[in-house]
Amino acid sequence: MMNIRIASRNSALALWQTYHIRDLLLARGHSVEIITMKTKGDVILDTPLAKIGGKGLFTKELENAMLEGRADIAVHSLKDVPTTFPDGLKLACVCSREDVSDAILSMKFKSFDELSANARVGTTSLRRRMQLLALRPDLDIISLRGNVNSRISKLKAGEFDAIVLAMAGINRLELFKEVEYISRLDTIAAMGQGALGIEAVDRGDILEAIEFLNDEKSAIETTIERAFVHKLNGGCQAPIGINAKLDGDKITIRAILGTPDGKDILKDEVVFNKSDYKVAGEILADKFINKGAKELLIKAEKIAAQI
Rank of each mutant, 00 (worst) to 15 (best):
D99Q: 08
F109L: 02
L91P: 07
A50F: 10
G122N: 10
G122W: 08
P137V: 05
N147P: 06
A74C: 09
I141V: 15
I152E: 01
S116E: 15
I52A: 12
I152R: 01
D138R: 03
A134V: 01
G88L: 08
L78T: 04
R97P: 06
S116I: 13
D99H: 14
Q131P: 08
K79H: 14
S111V: 05
M130V: 00
G146Q: 11
L78K: 06
A103T: 06
G158P: 06
A134M: 00
A74N: 04
E61L: 04
F112G: 07
I142D: 02
V81L: 15
S153Q: 15
A117Q: 07
V100L: 05
A50P: 02
L62C: 11
E98K: 05
N64Y: 08
A134Y: 00
T123Y: 04
F112D: 11
L67K: 08
D87F: 11
E114M: 03
D138T: 10
I52M: 10
R127A: 11
R127D: 06
R127L: 05
G122L: 09
L132K: 03
D161W: 09
A117W: 07
N149L: 12
D99R: 12
K51F: 01
S153E: 14
R136E: 00
F109D: 13
M107N: 14
I163P: 07
V121W: 03
L62V: 02
V100Y: 13
T84W: 09
I163N: 04
N149D: 12
T124L: 09
V100M: 12
K60I: 14
I52E: 08
S101W: 13
A103N: 11
T84L: 05
H76Y: 15
A119L: 09
K156P: 03
L57A: 07
K90H: 10
L62M: 15
S150C: 01
D161V: 06
F160G: 02
V164C: 14
S96R: 15
D138S: 13
L91G: 15
S96L: 05
L49E: 13
R70Q: 14
L62P: 04
P82A: 09
I73T: 11
L133S: 06
K156E: 10
S101D: 15
D161R: 13
N64G: 04
S125W: 10
K55V: 02
G56M: 12
L144K: 05
G53E: 09
M130D: 01
D140M: 02
R145V: 02
E61W: 01
P86H: 12
R136D: 00
E63P: 02
S125I: 08
L133D: 01
Q131L: 06
I163Q: 04
S150E: 12
F112R: 12
A92Q: 10
F160H: 03
A65L: 15
A117L: 14
L67G: 09
R70E: 10
A157T: 06
I73A: 13
A92P: 10
L91F: 10
K55T: 07
T83L: 03
S96I: 04
L115Q: 03
E68T: 06
C93Y: 11
S77A: 14
A119I: 05
R136N: 00
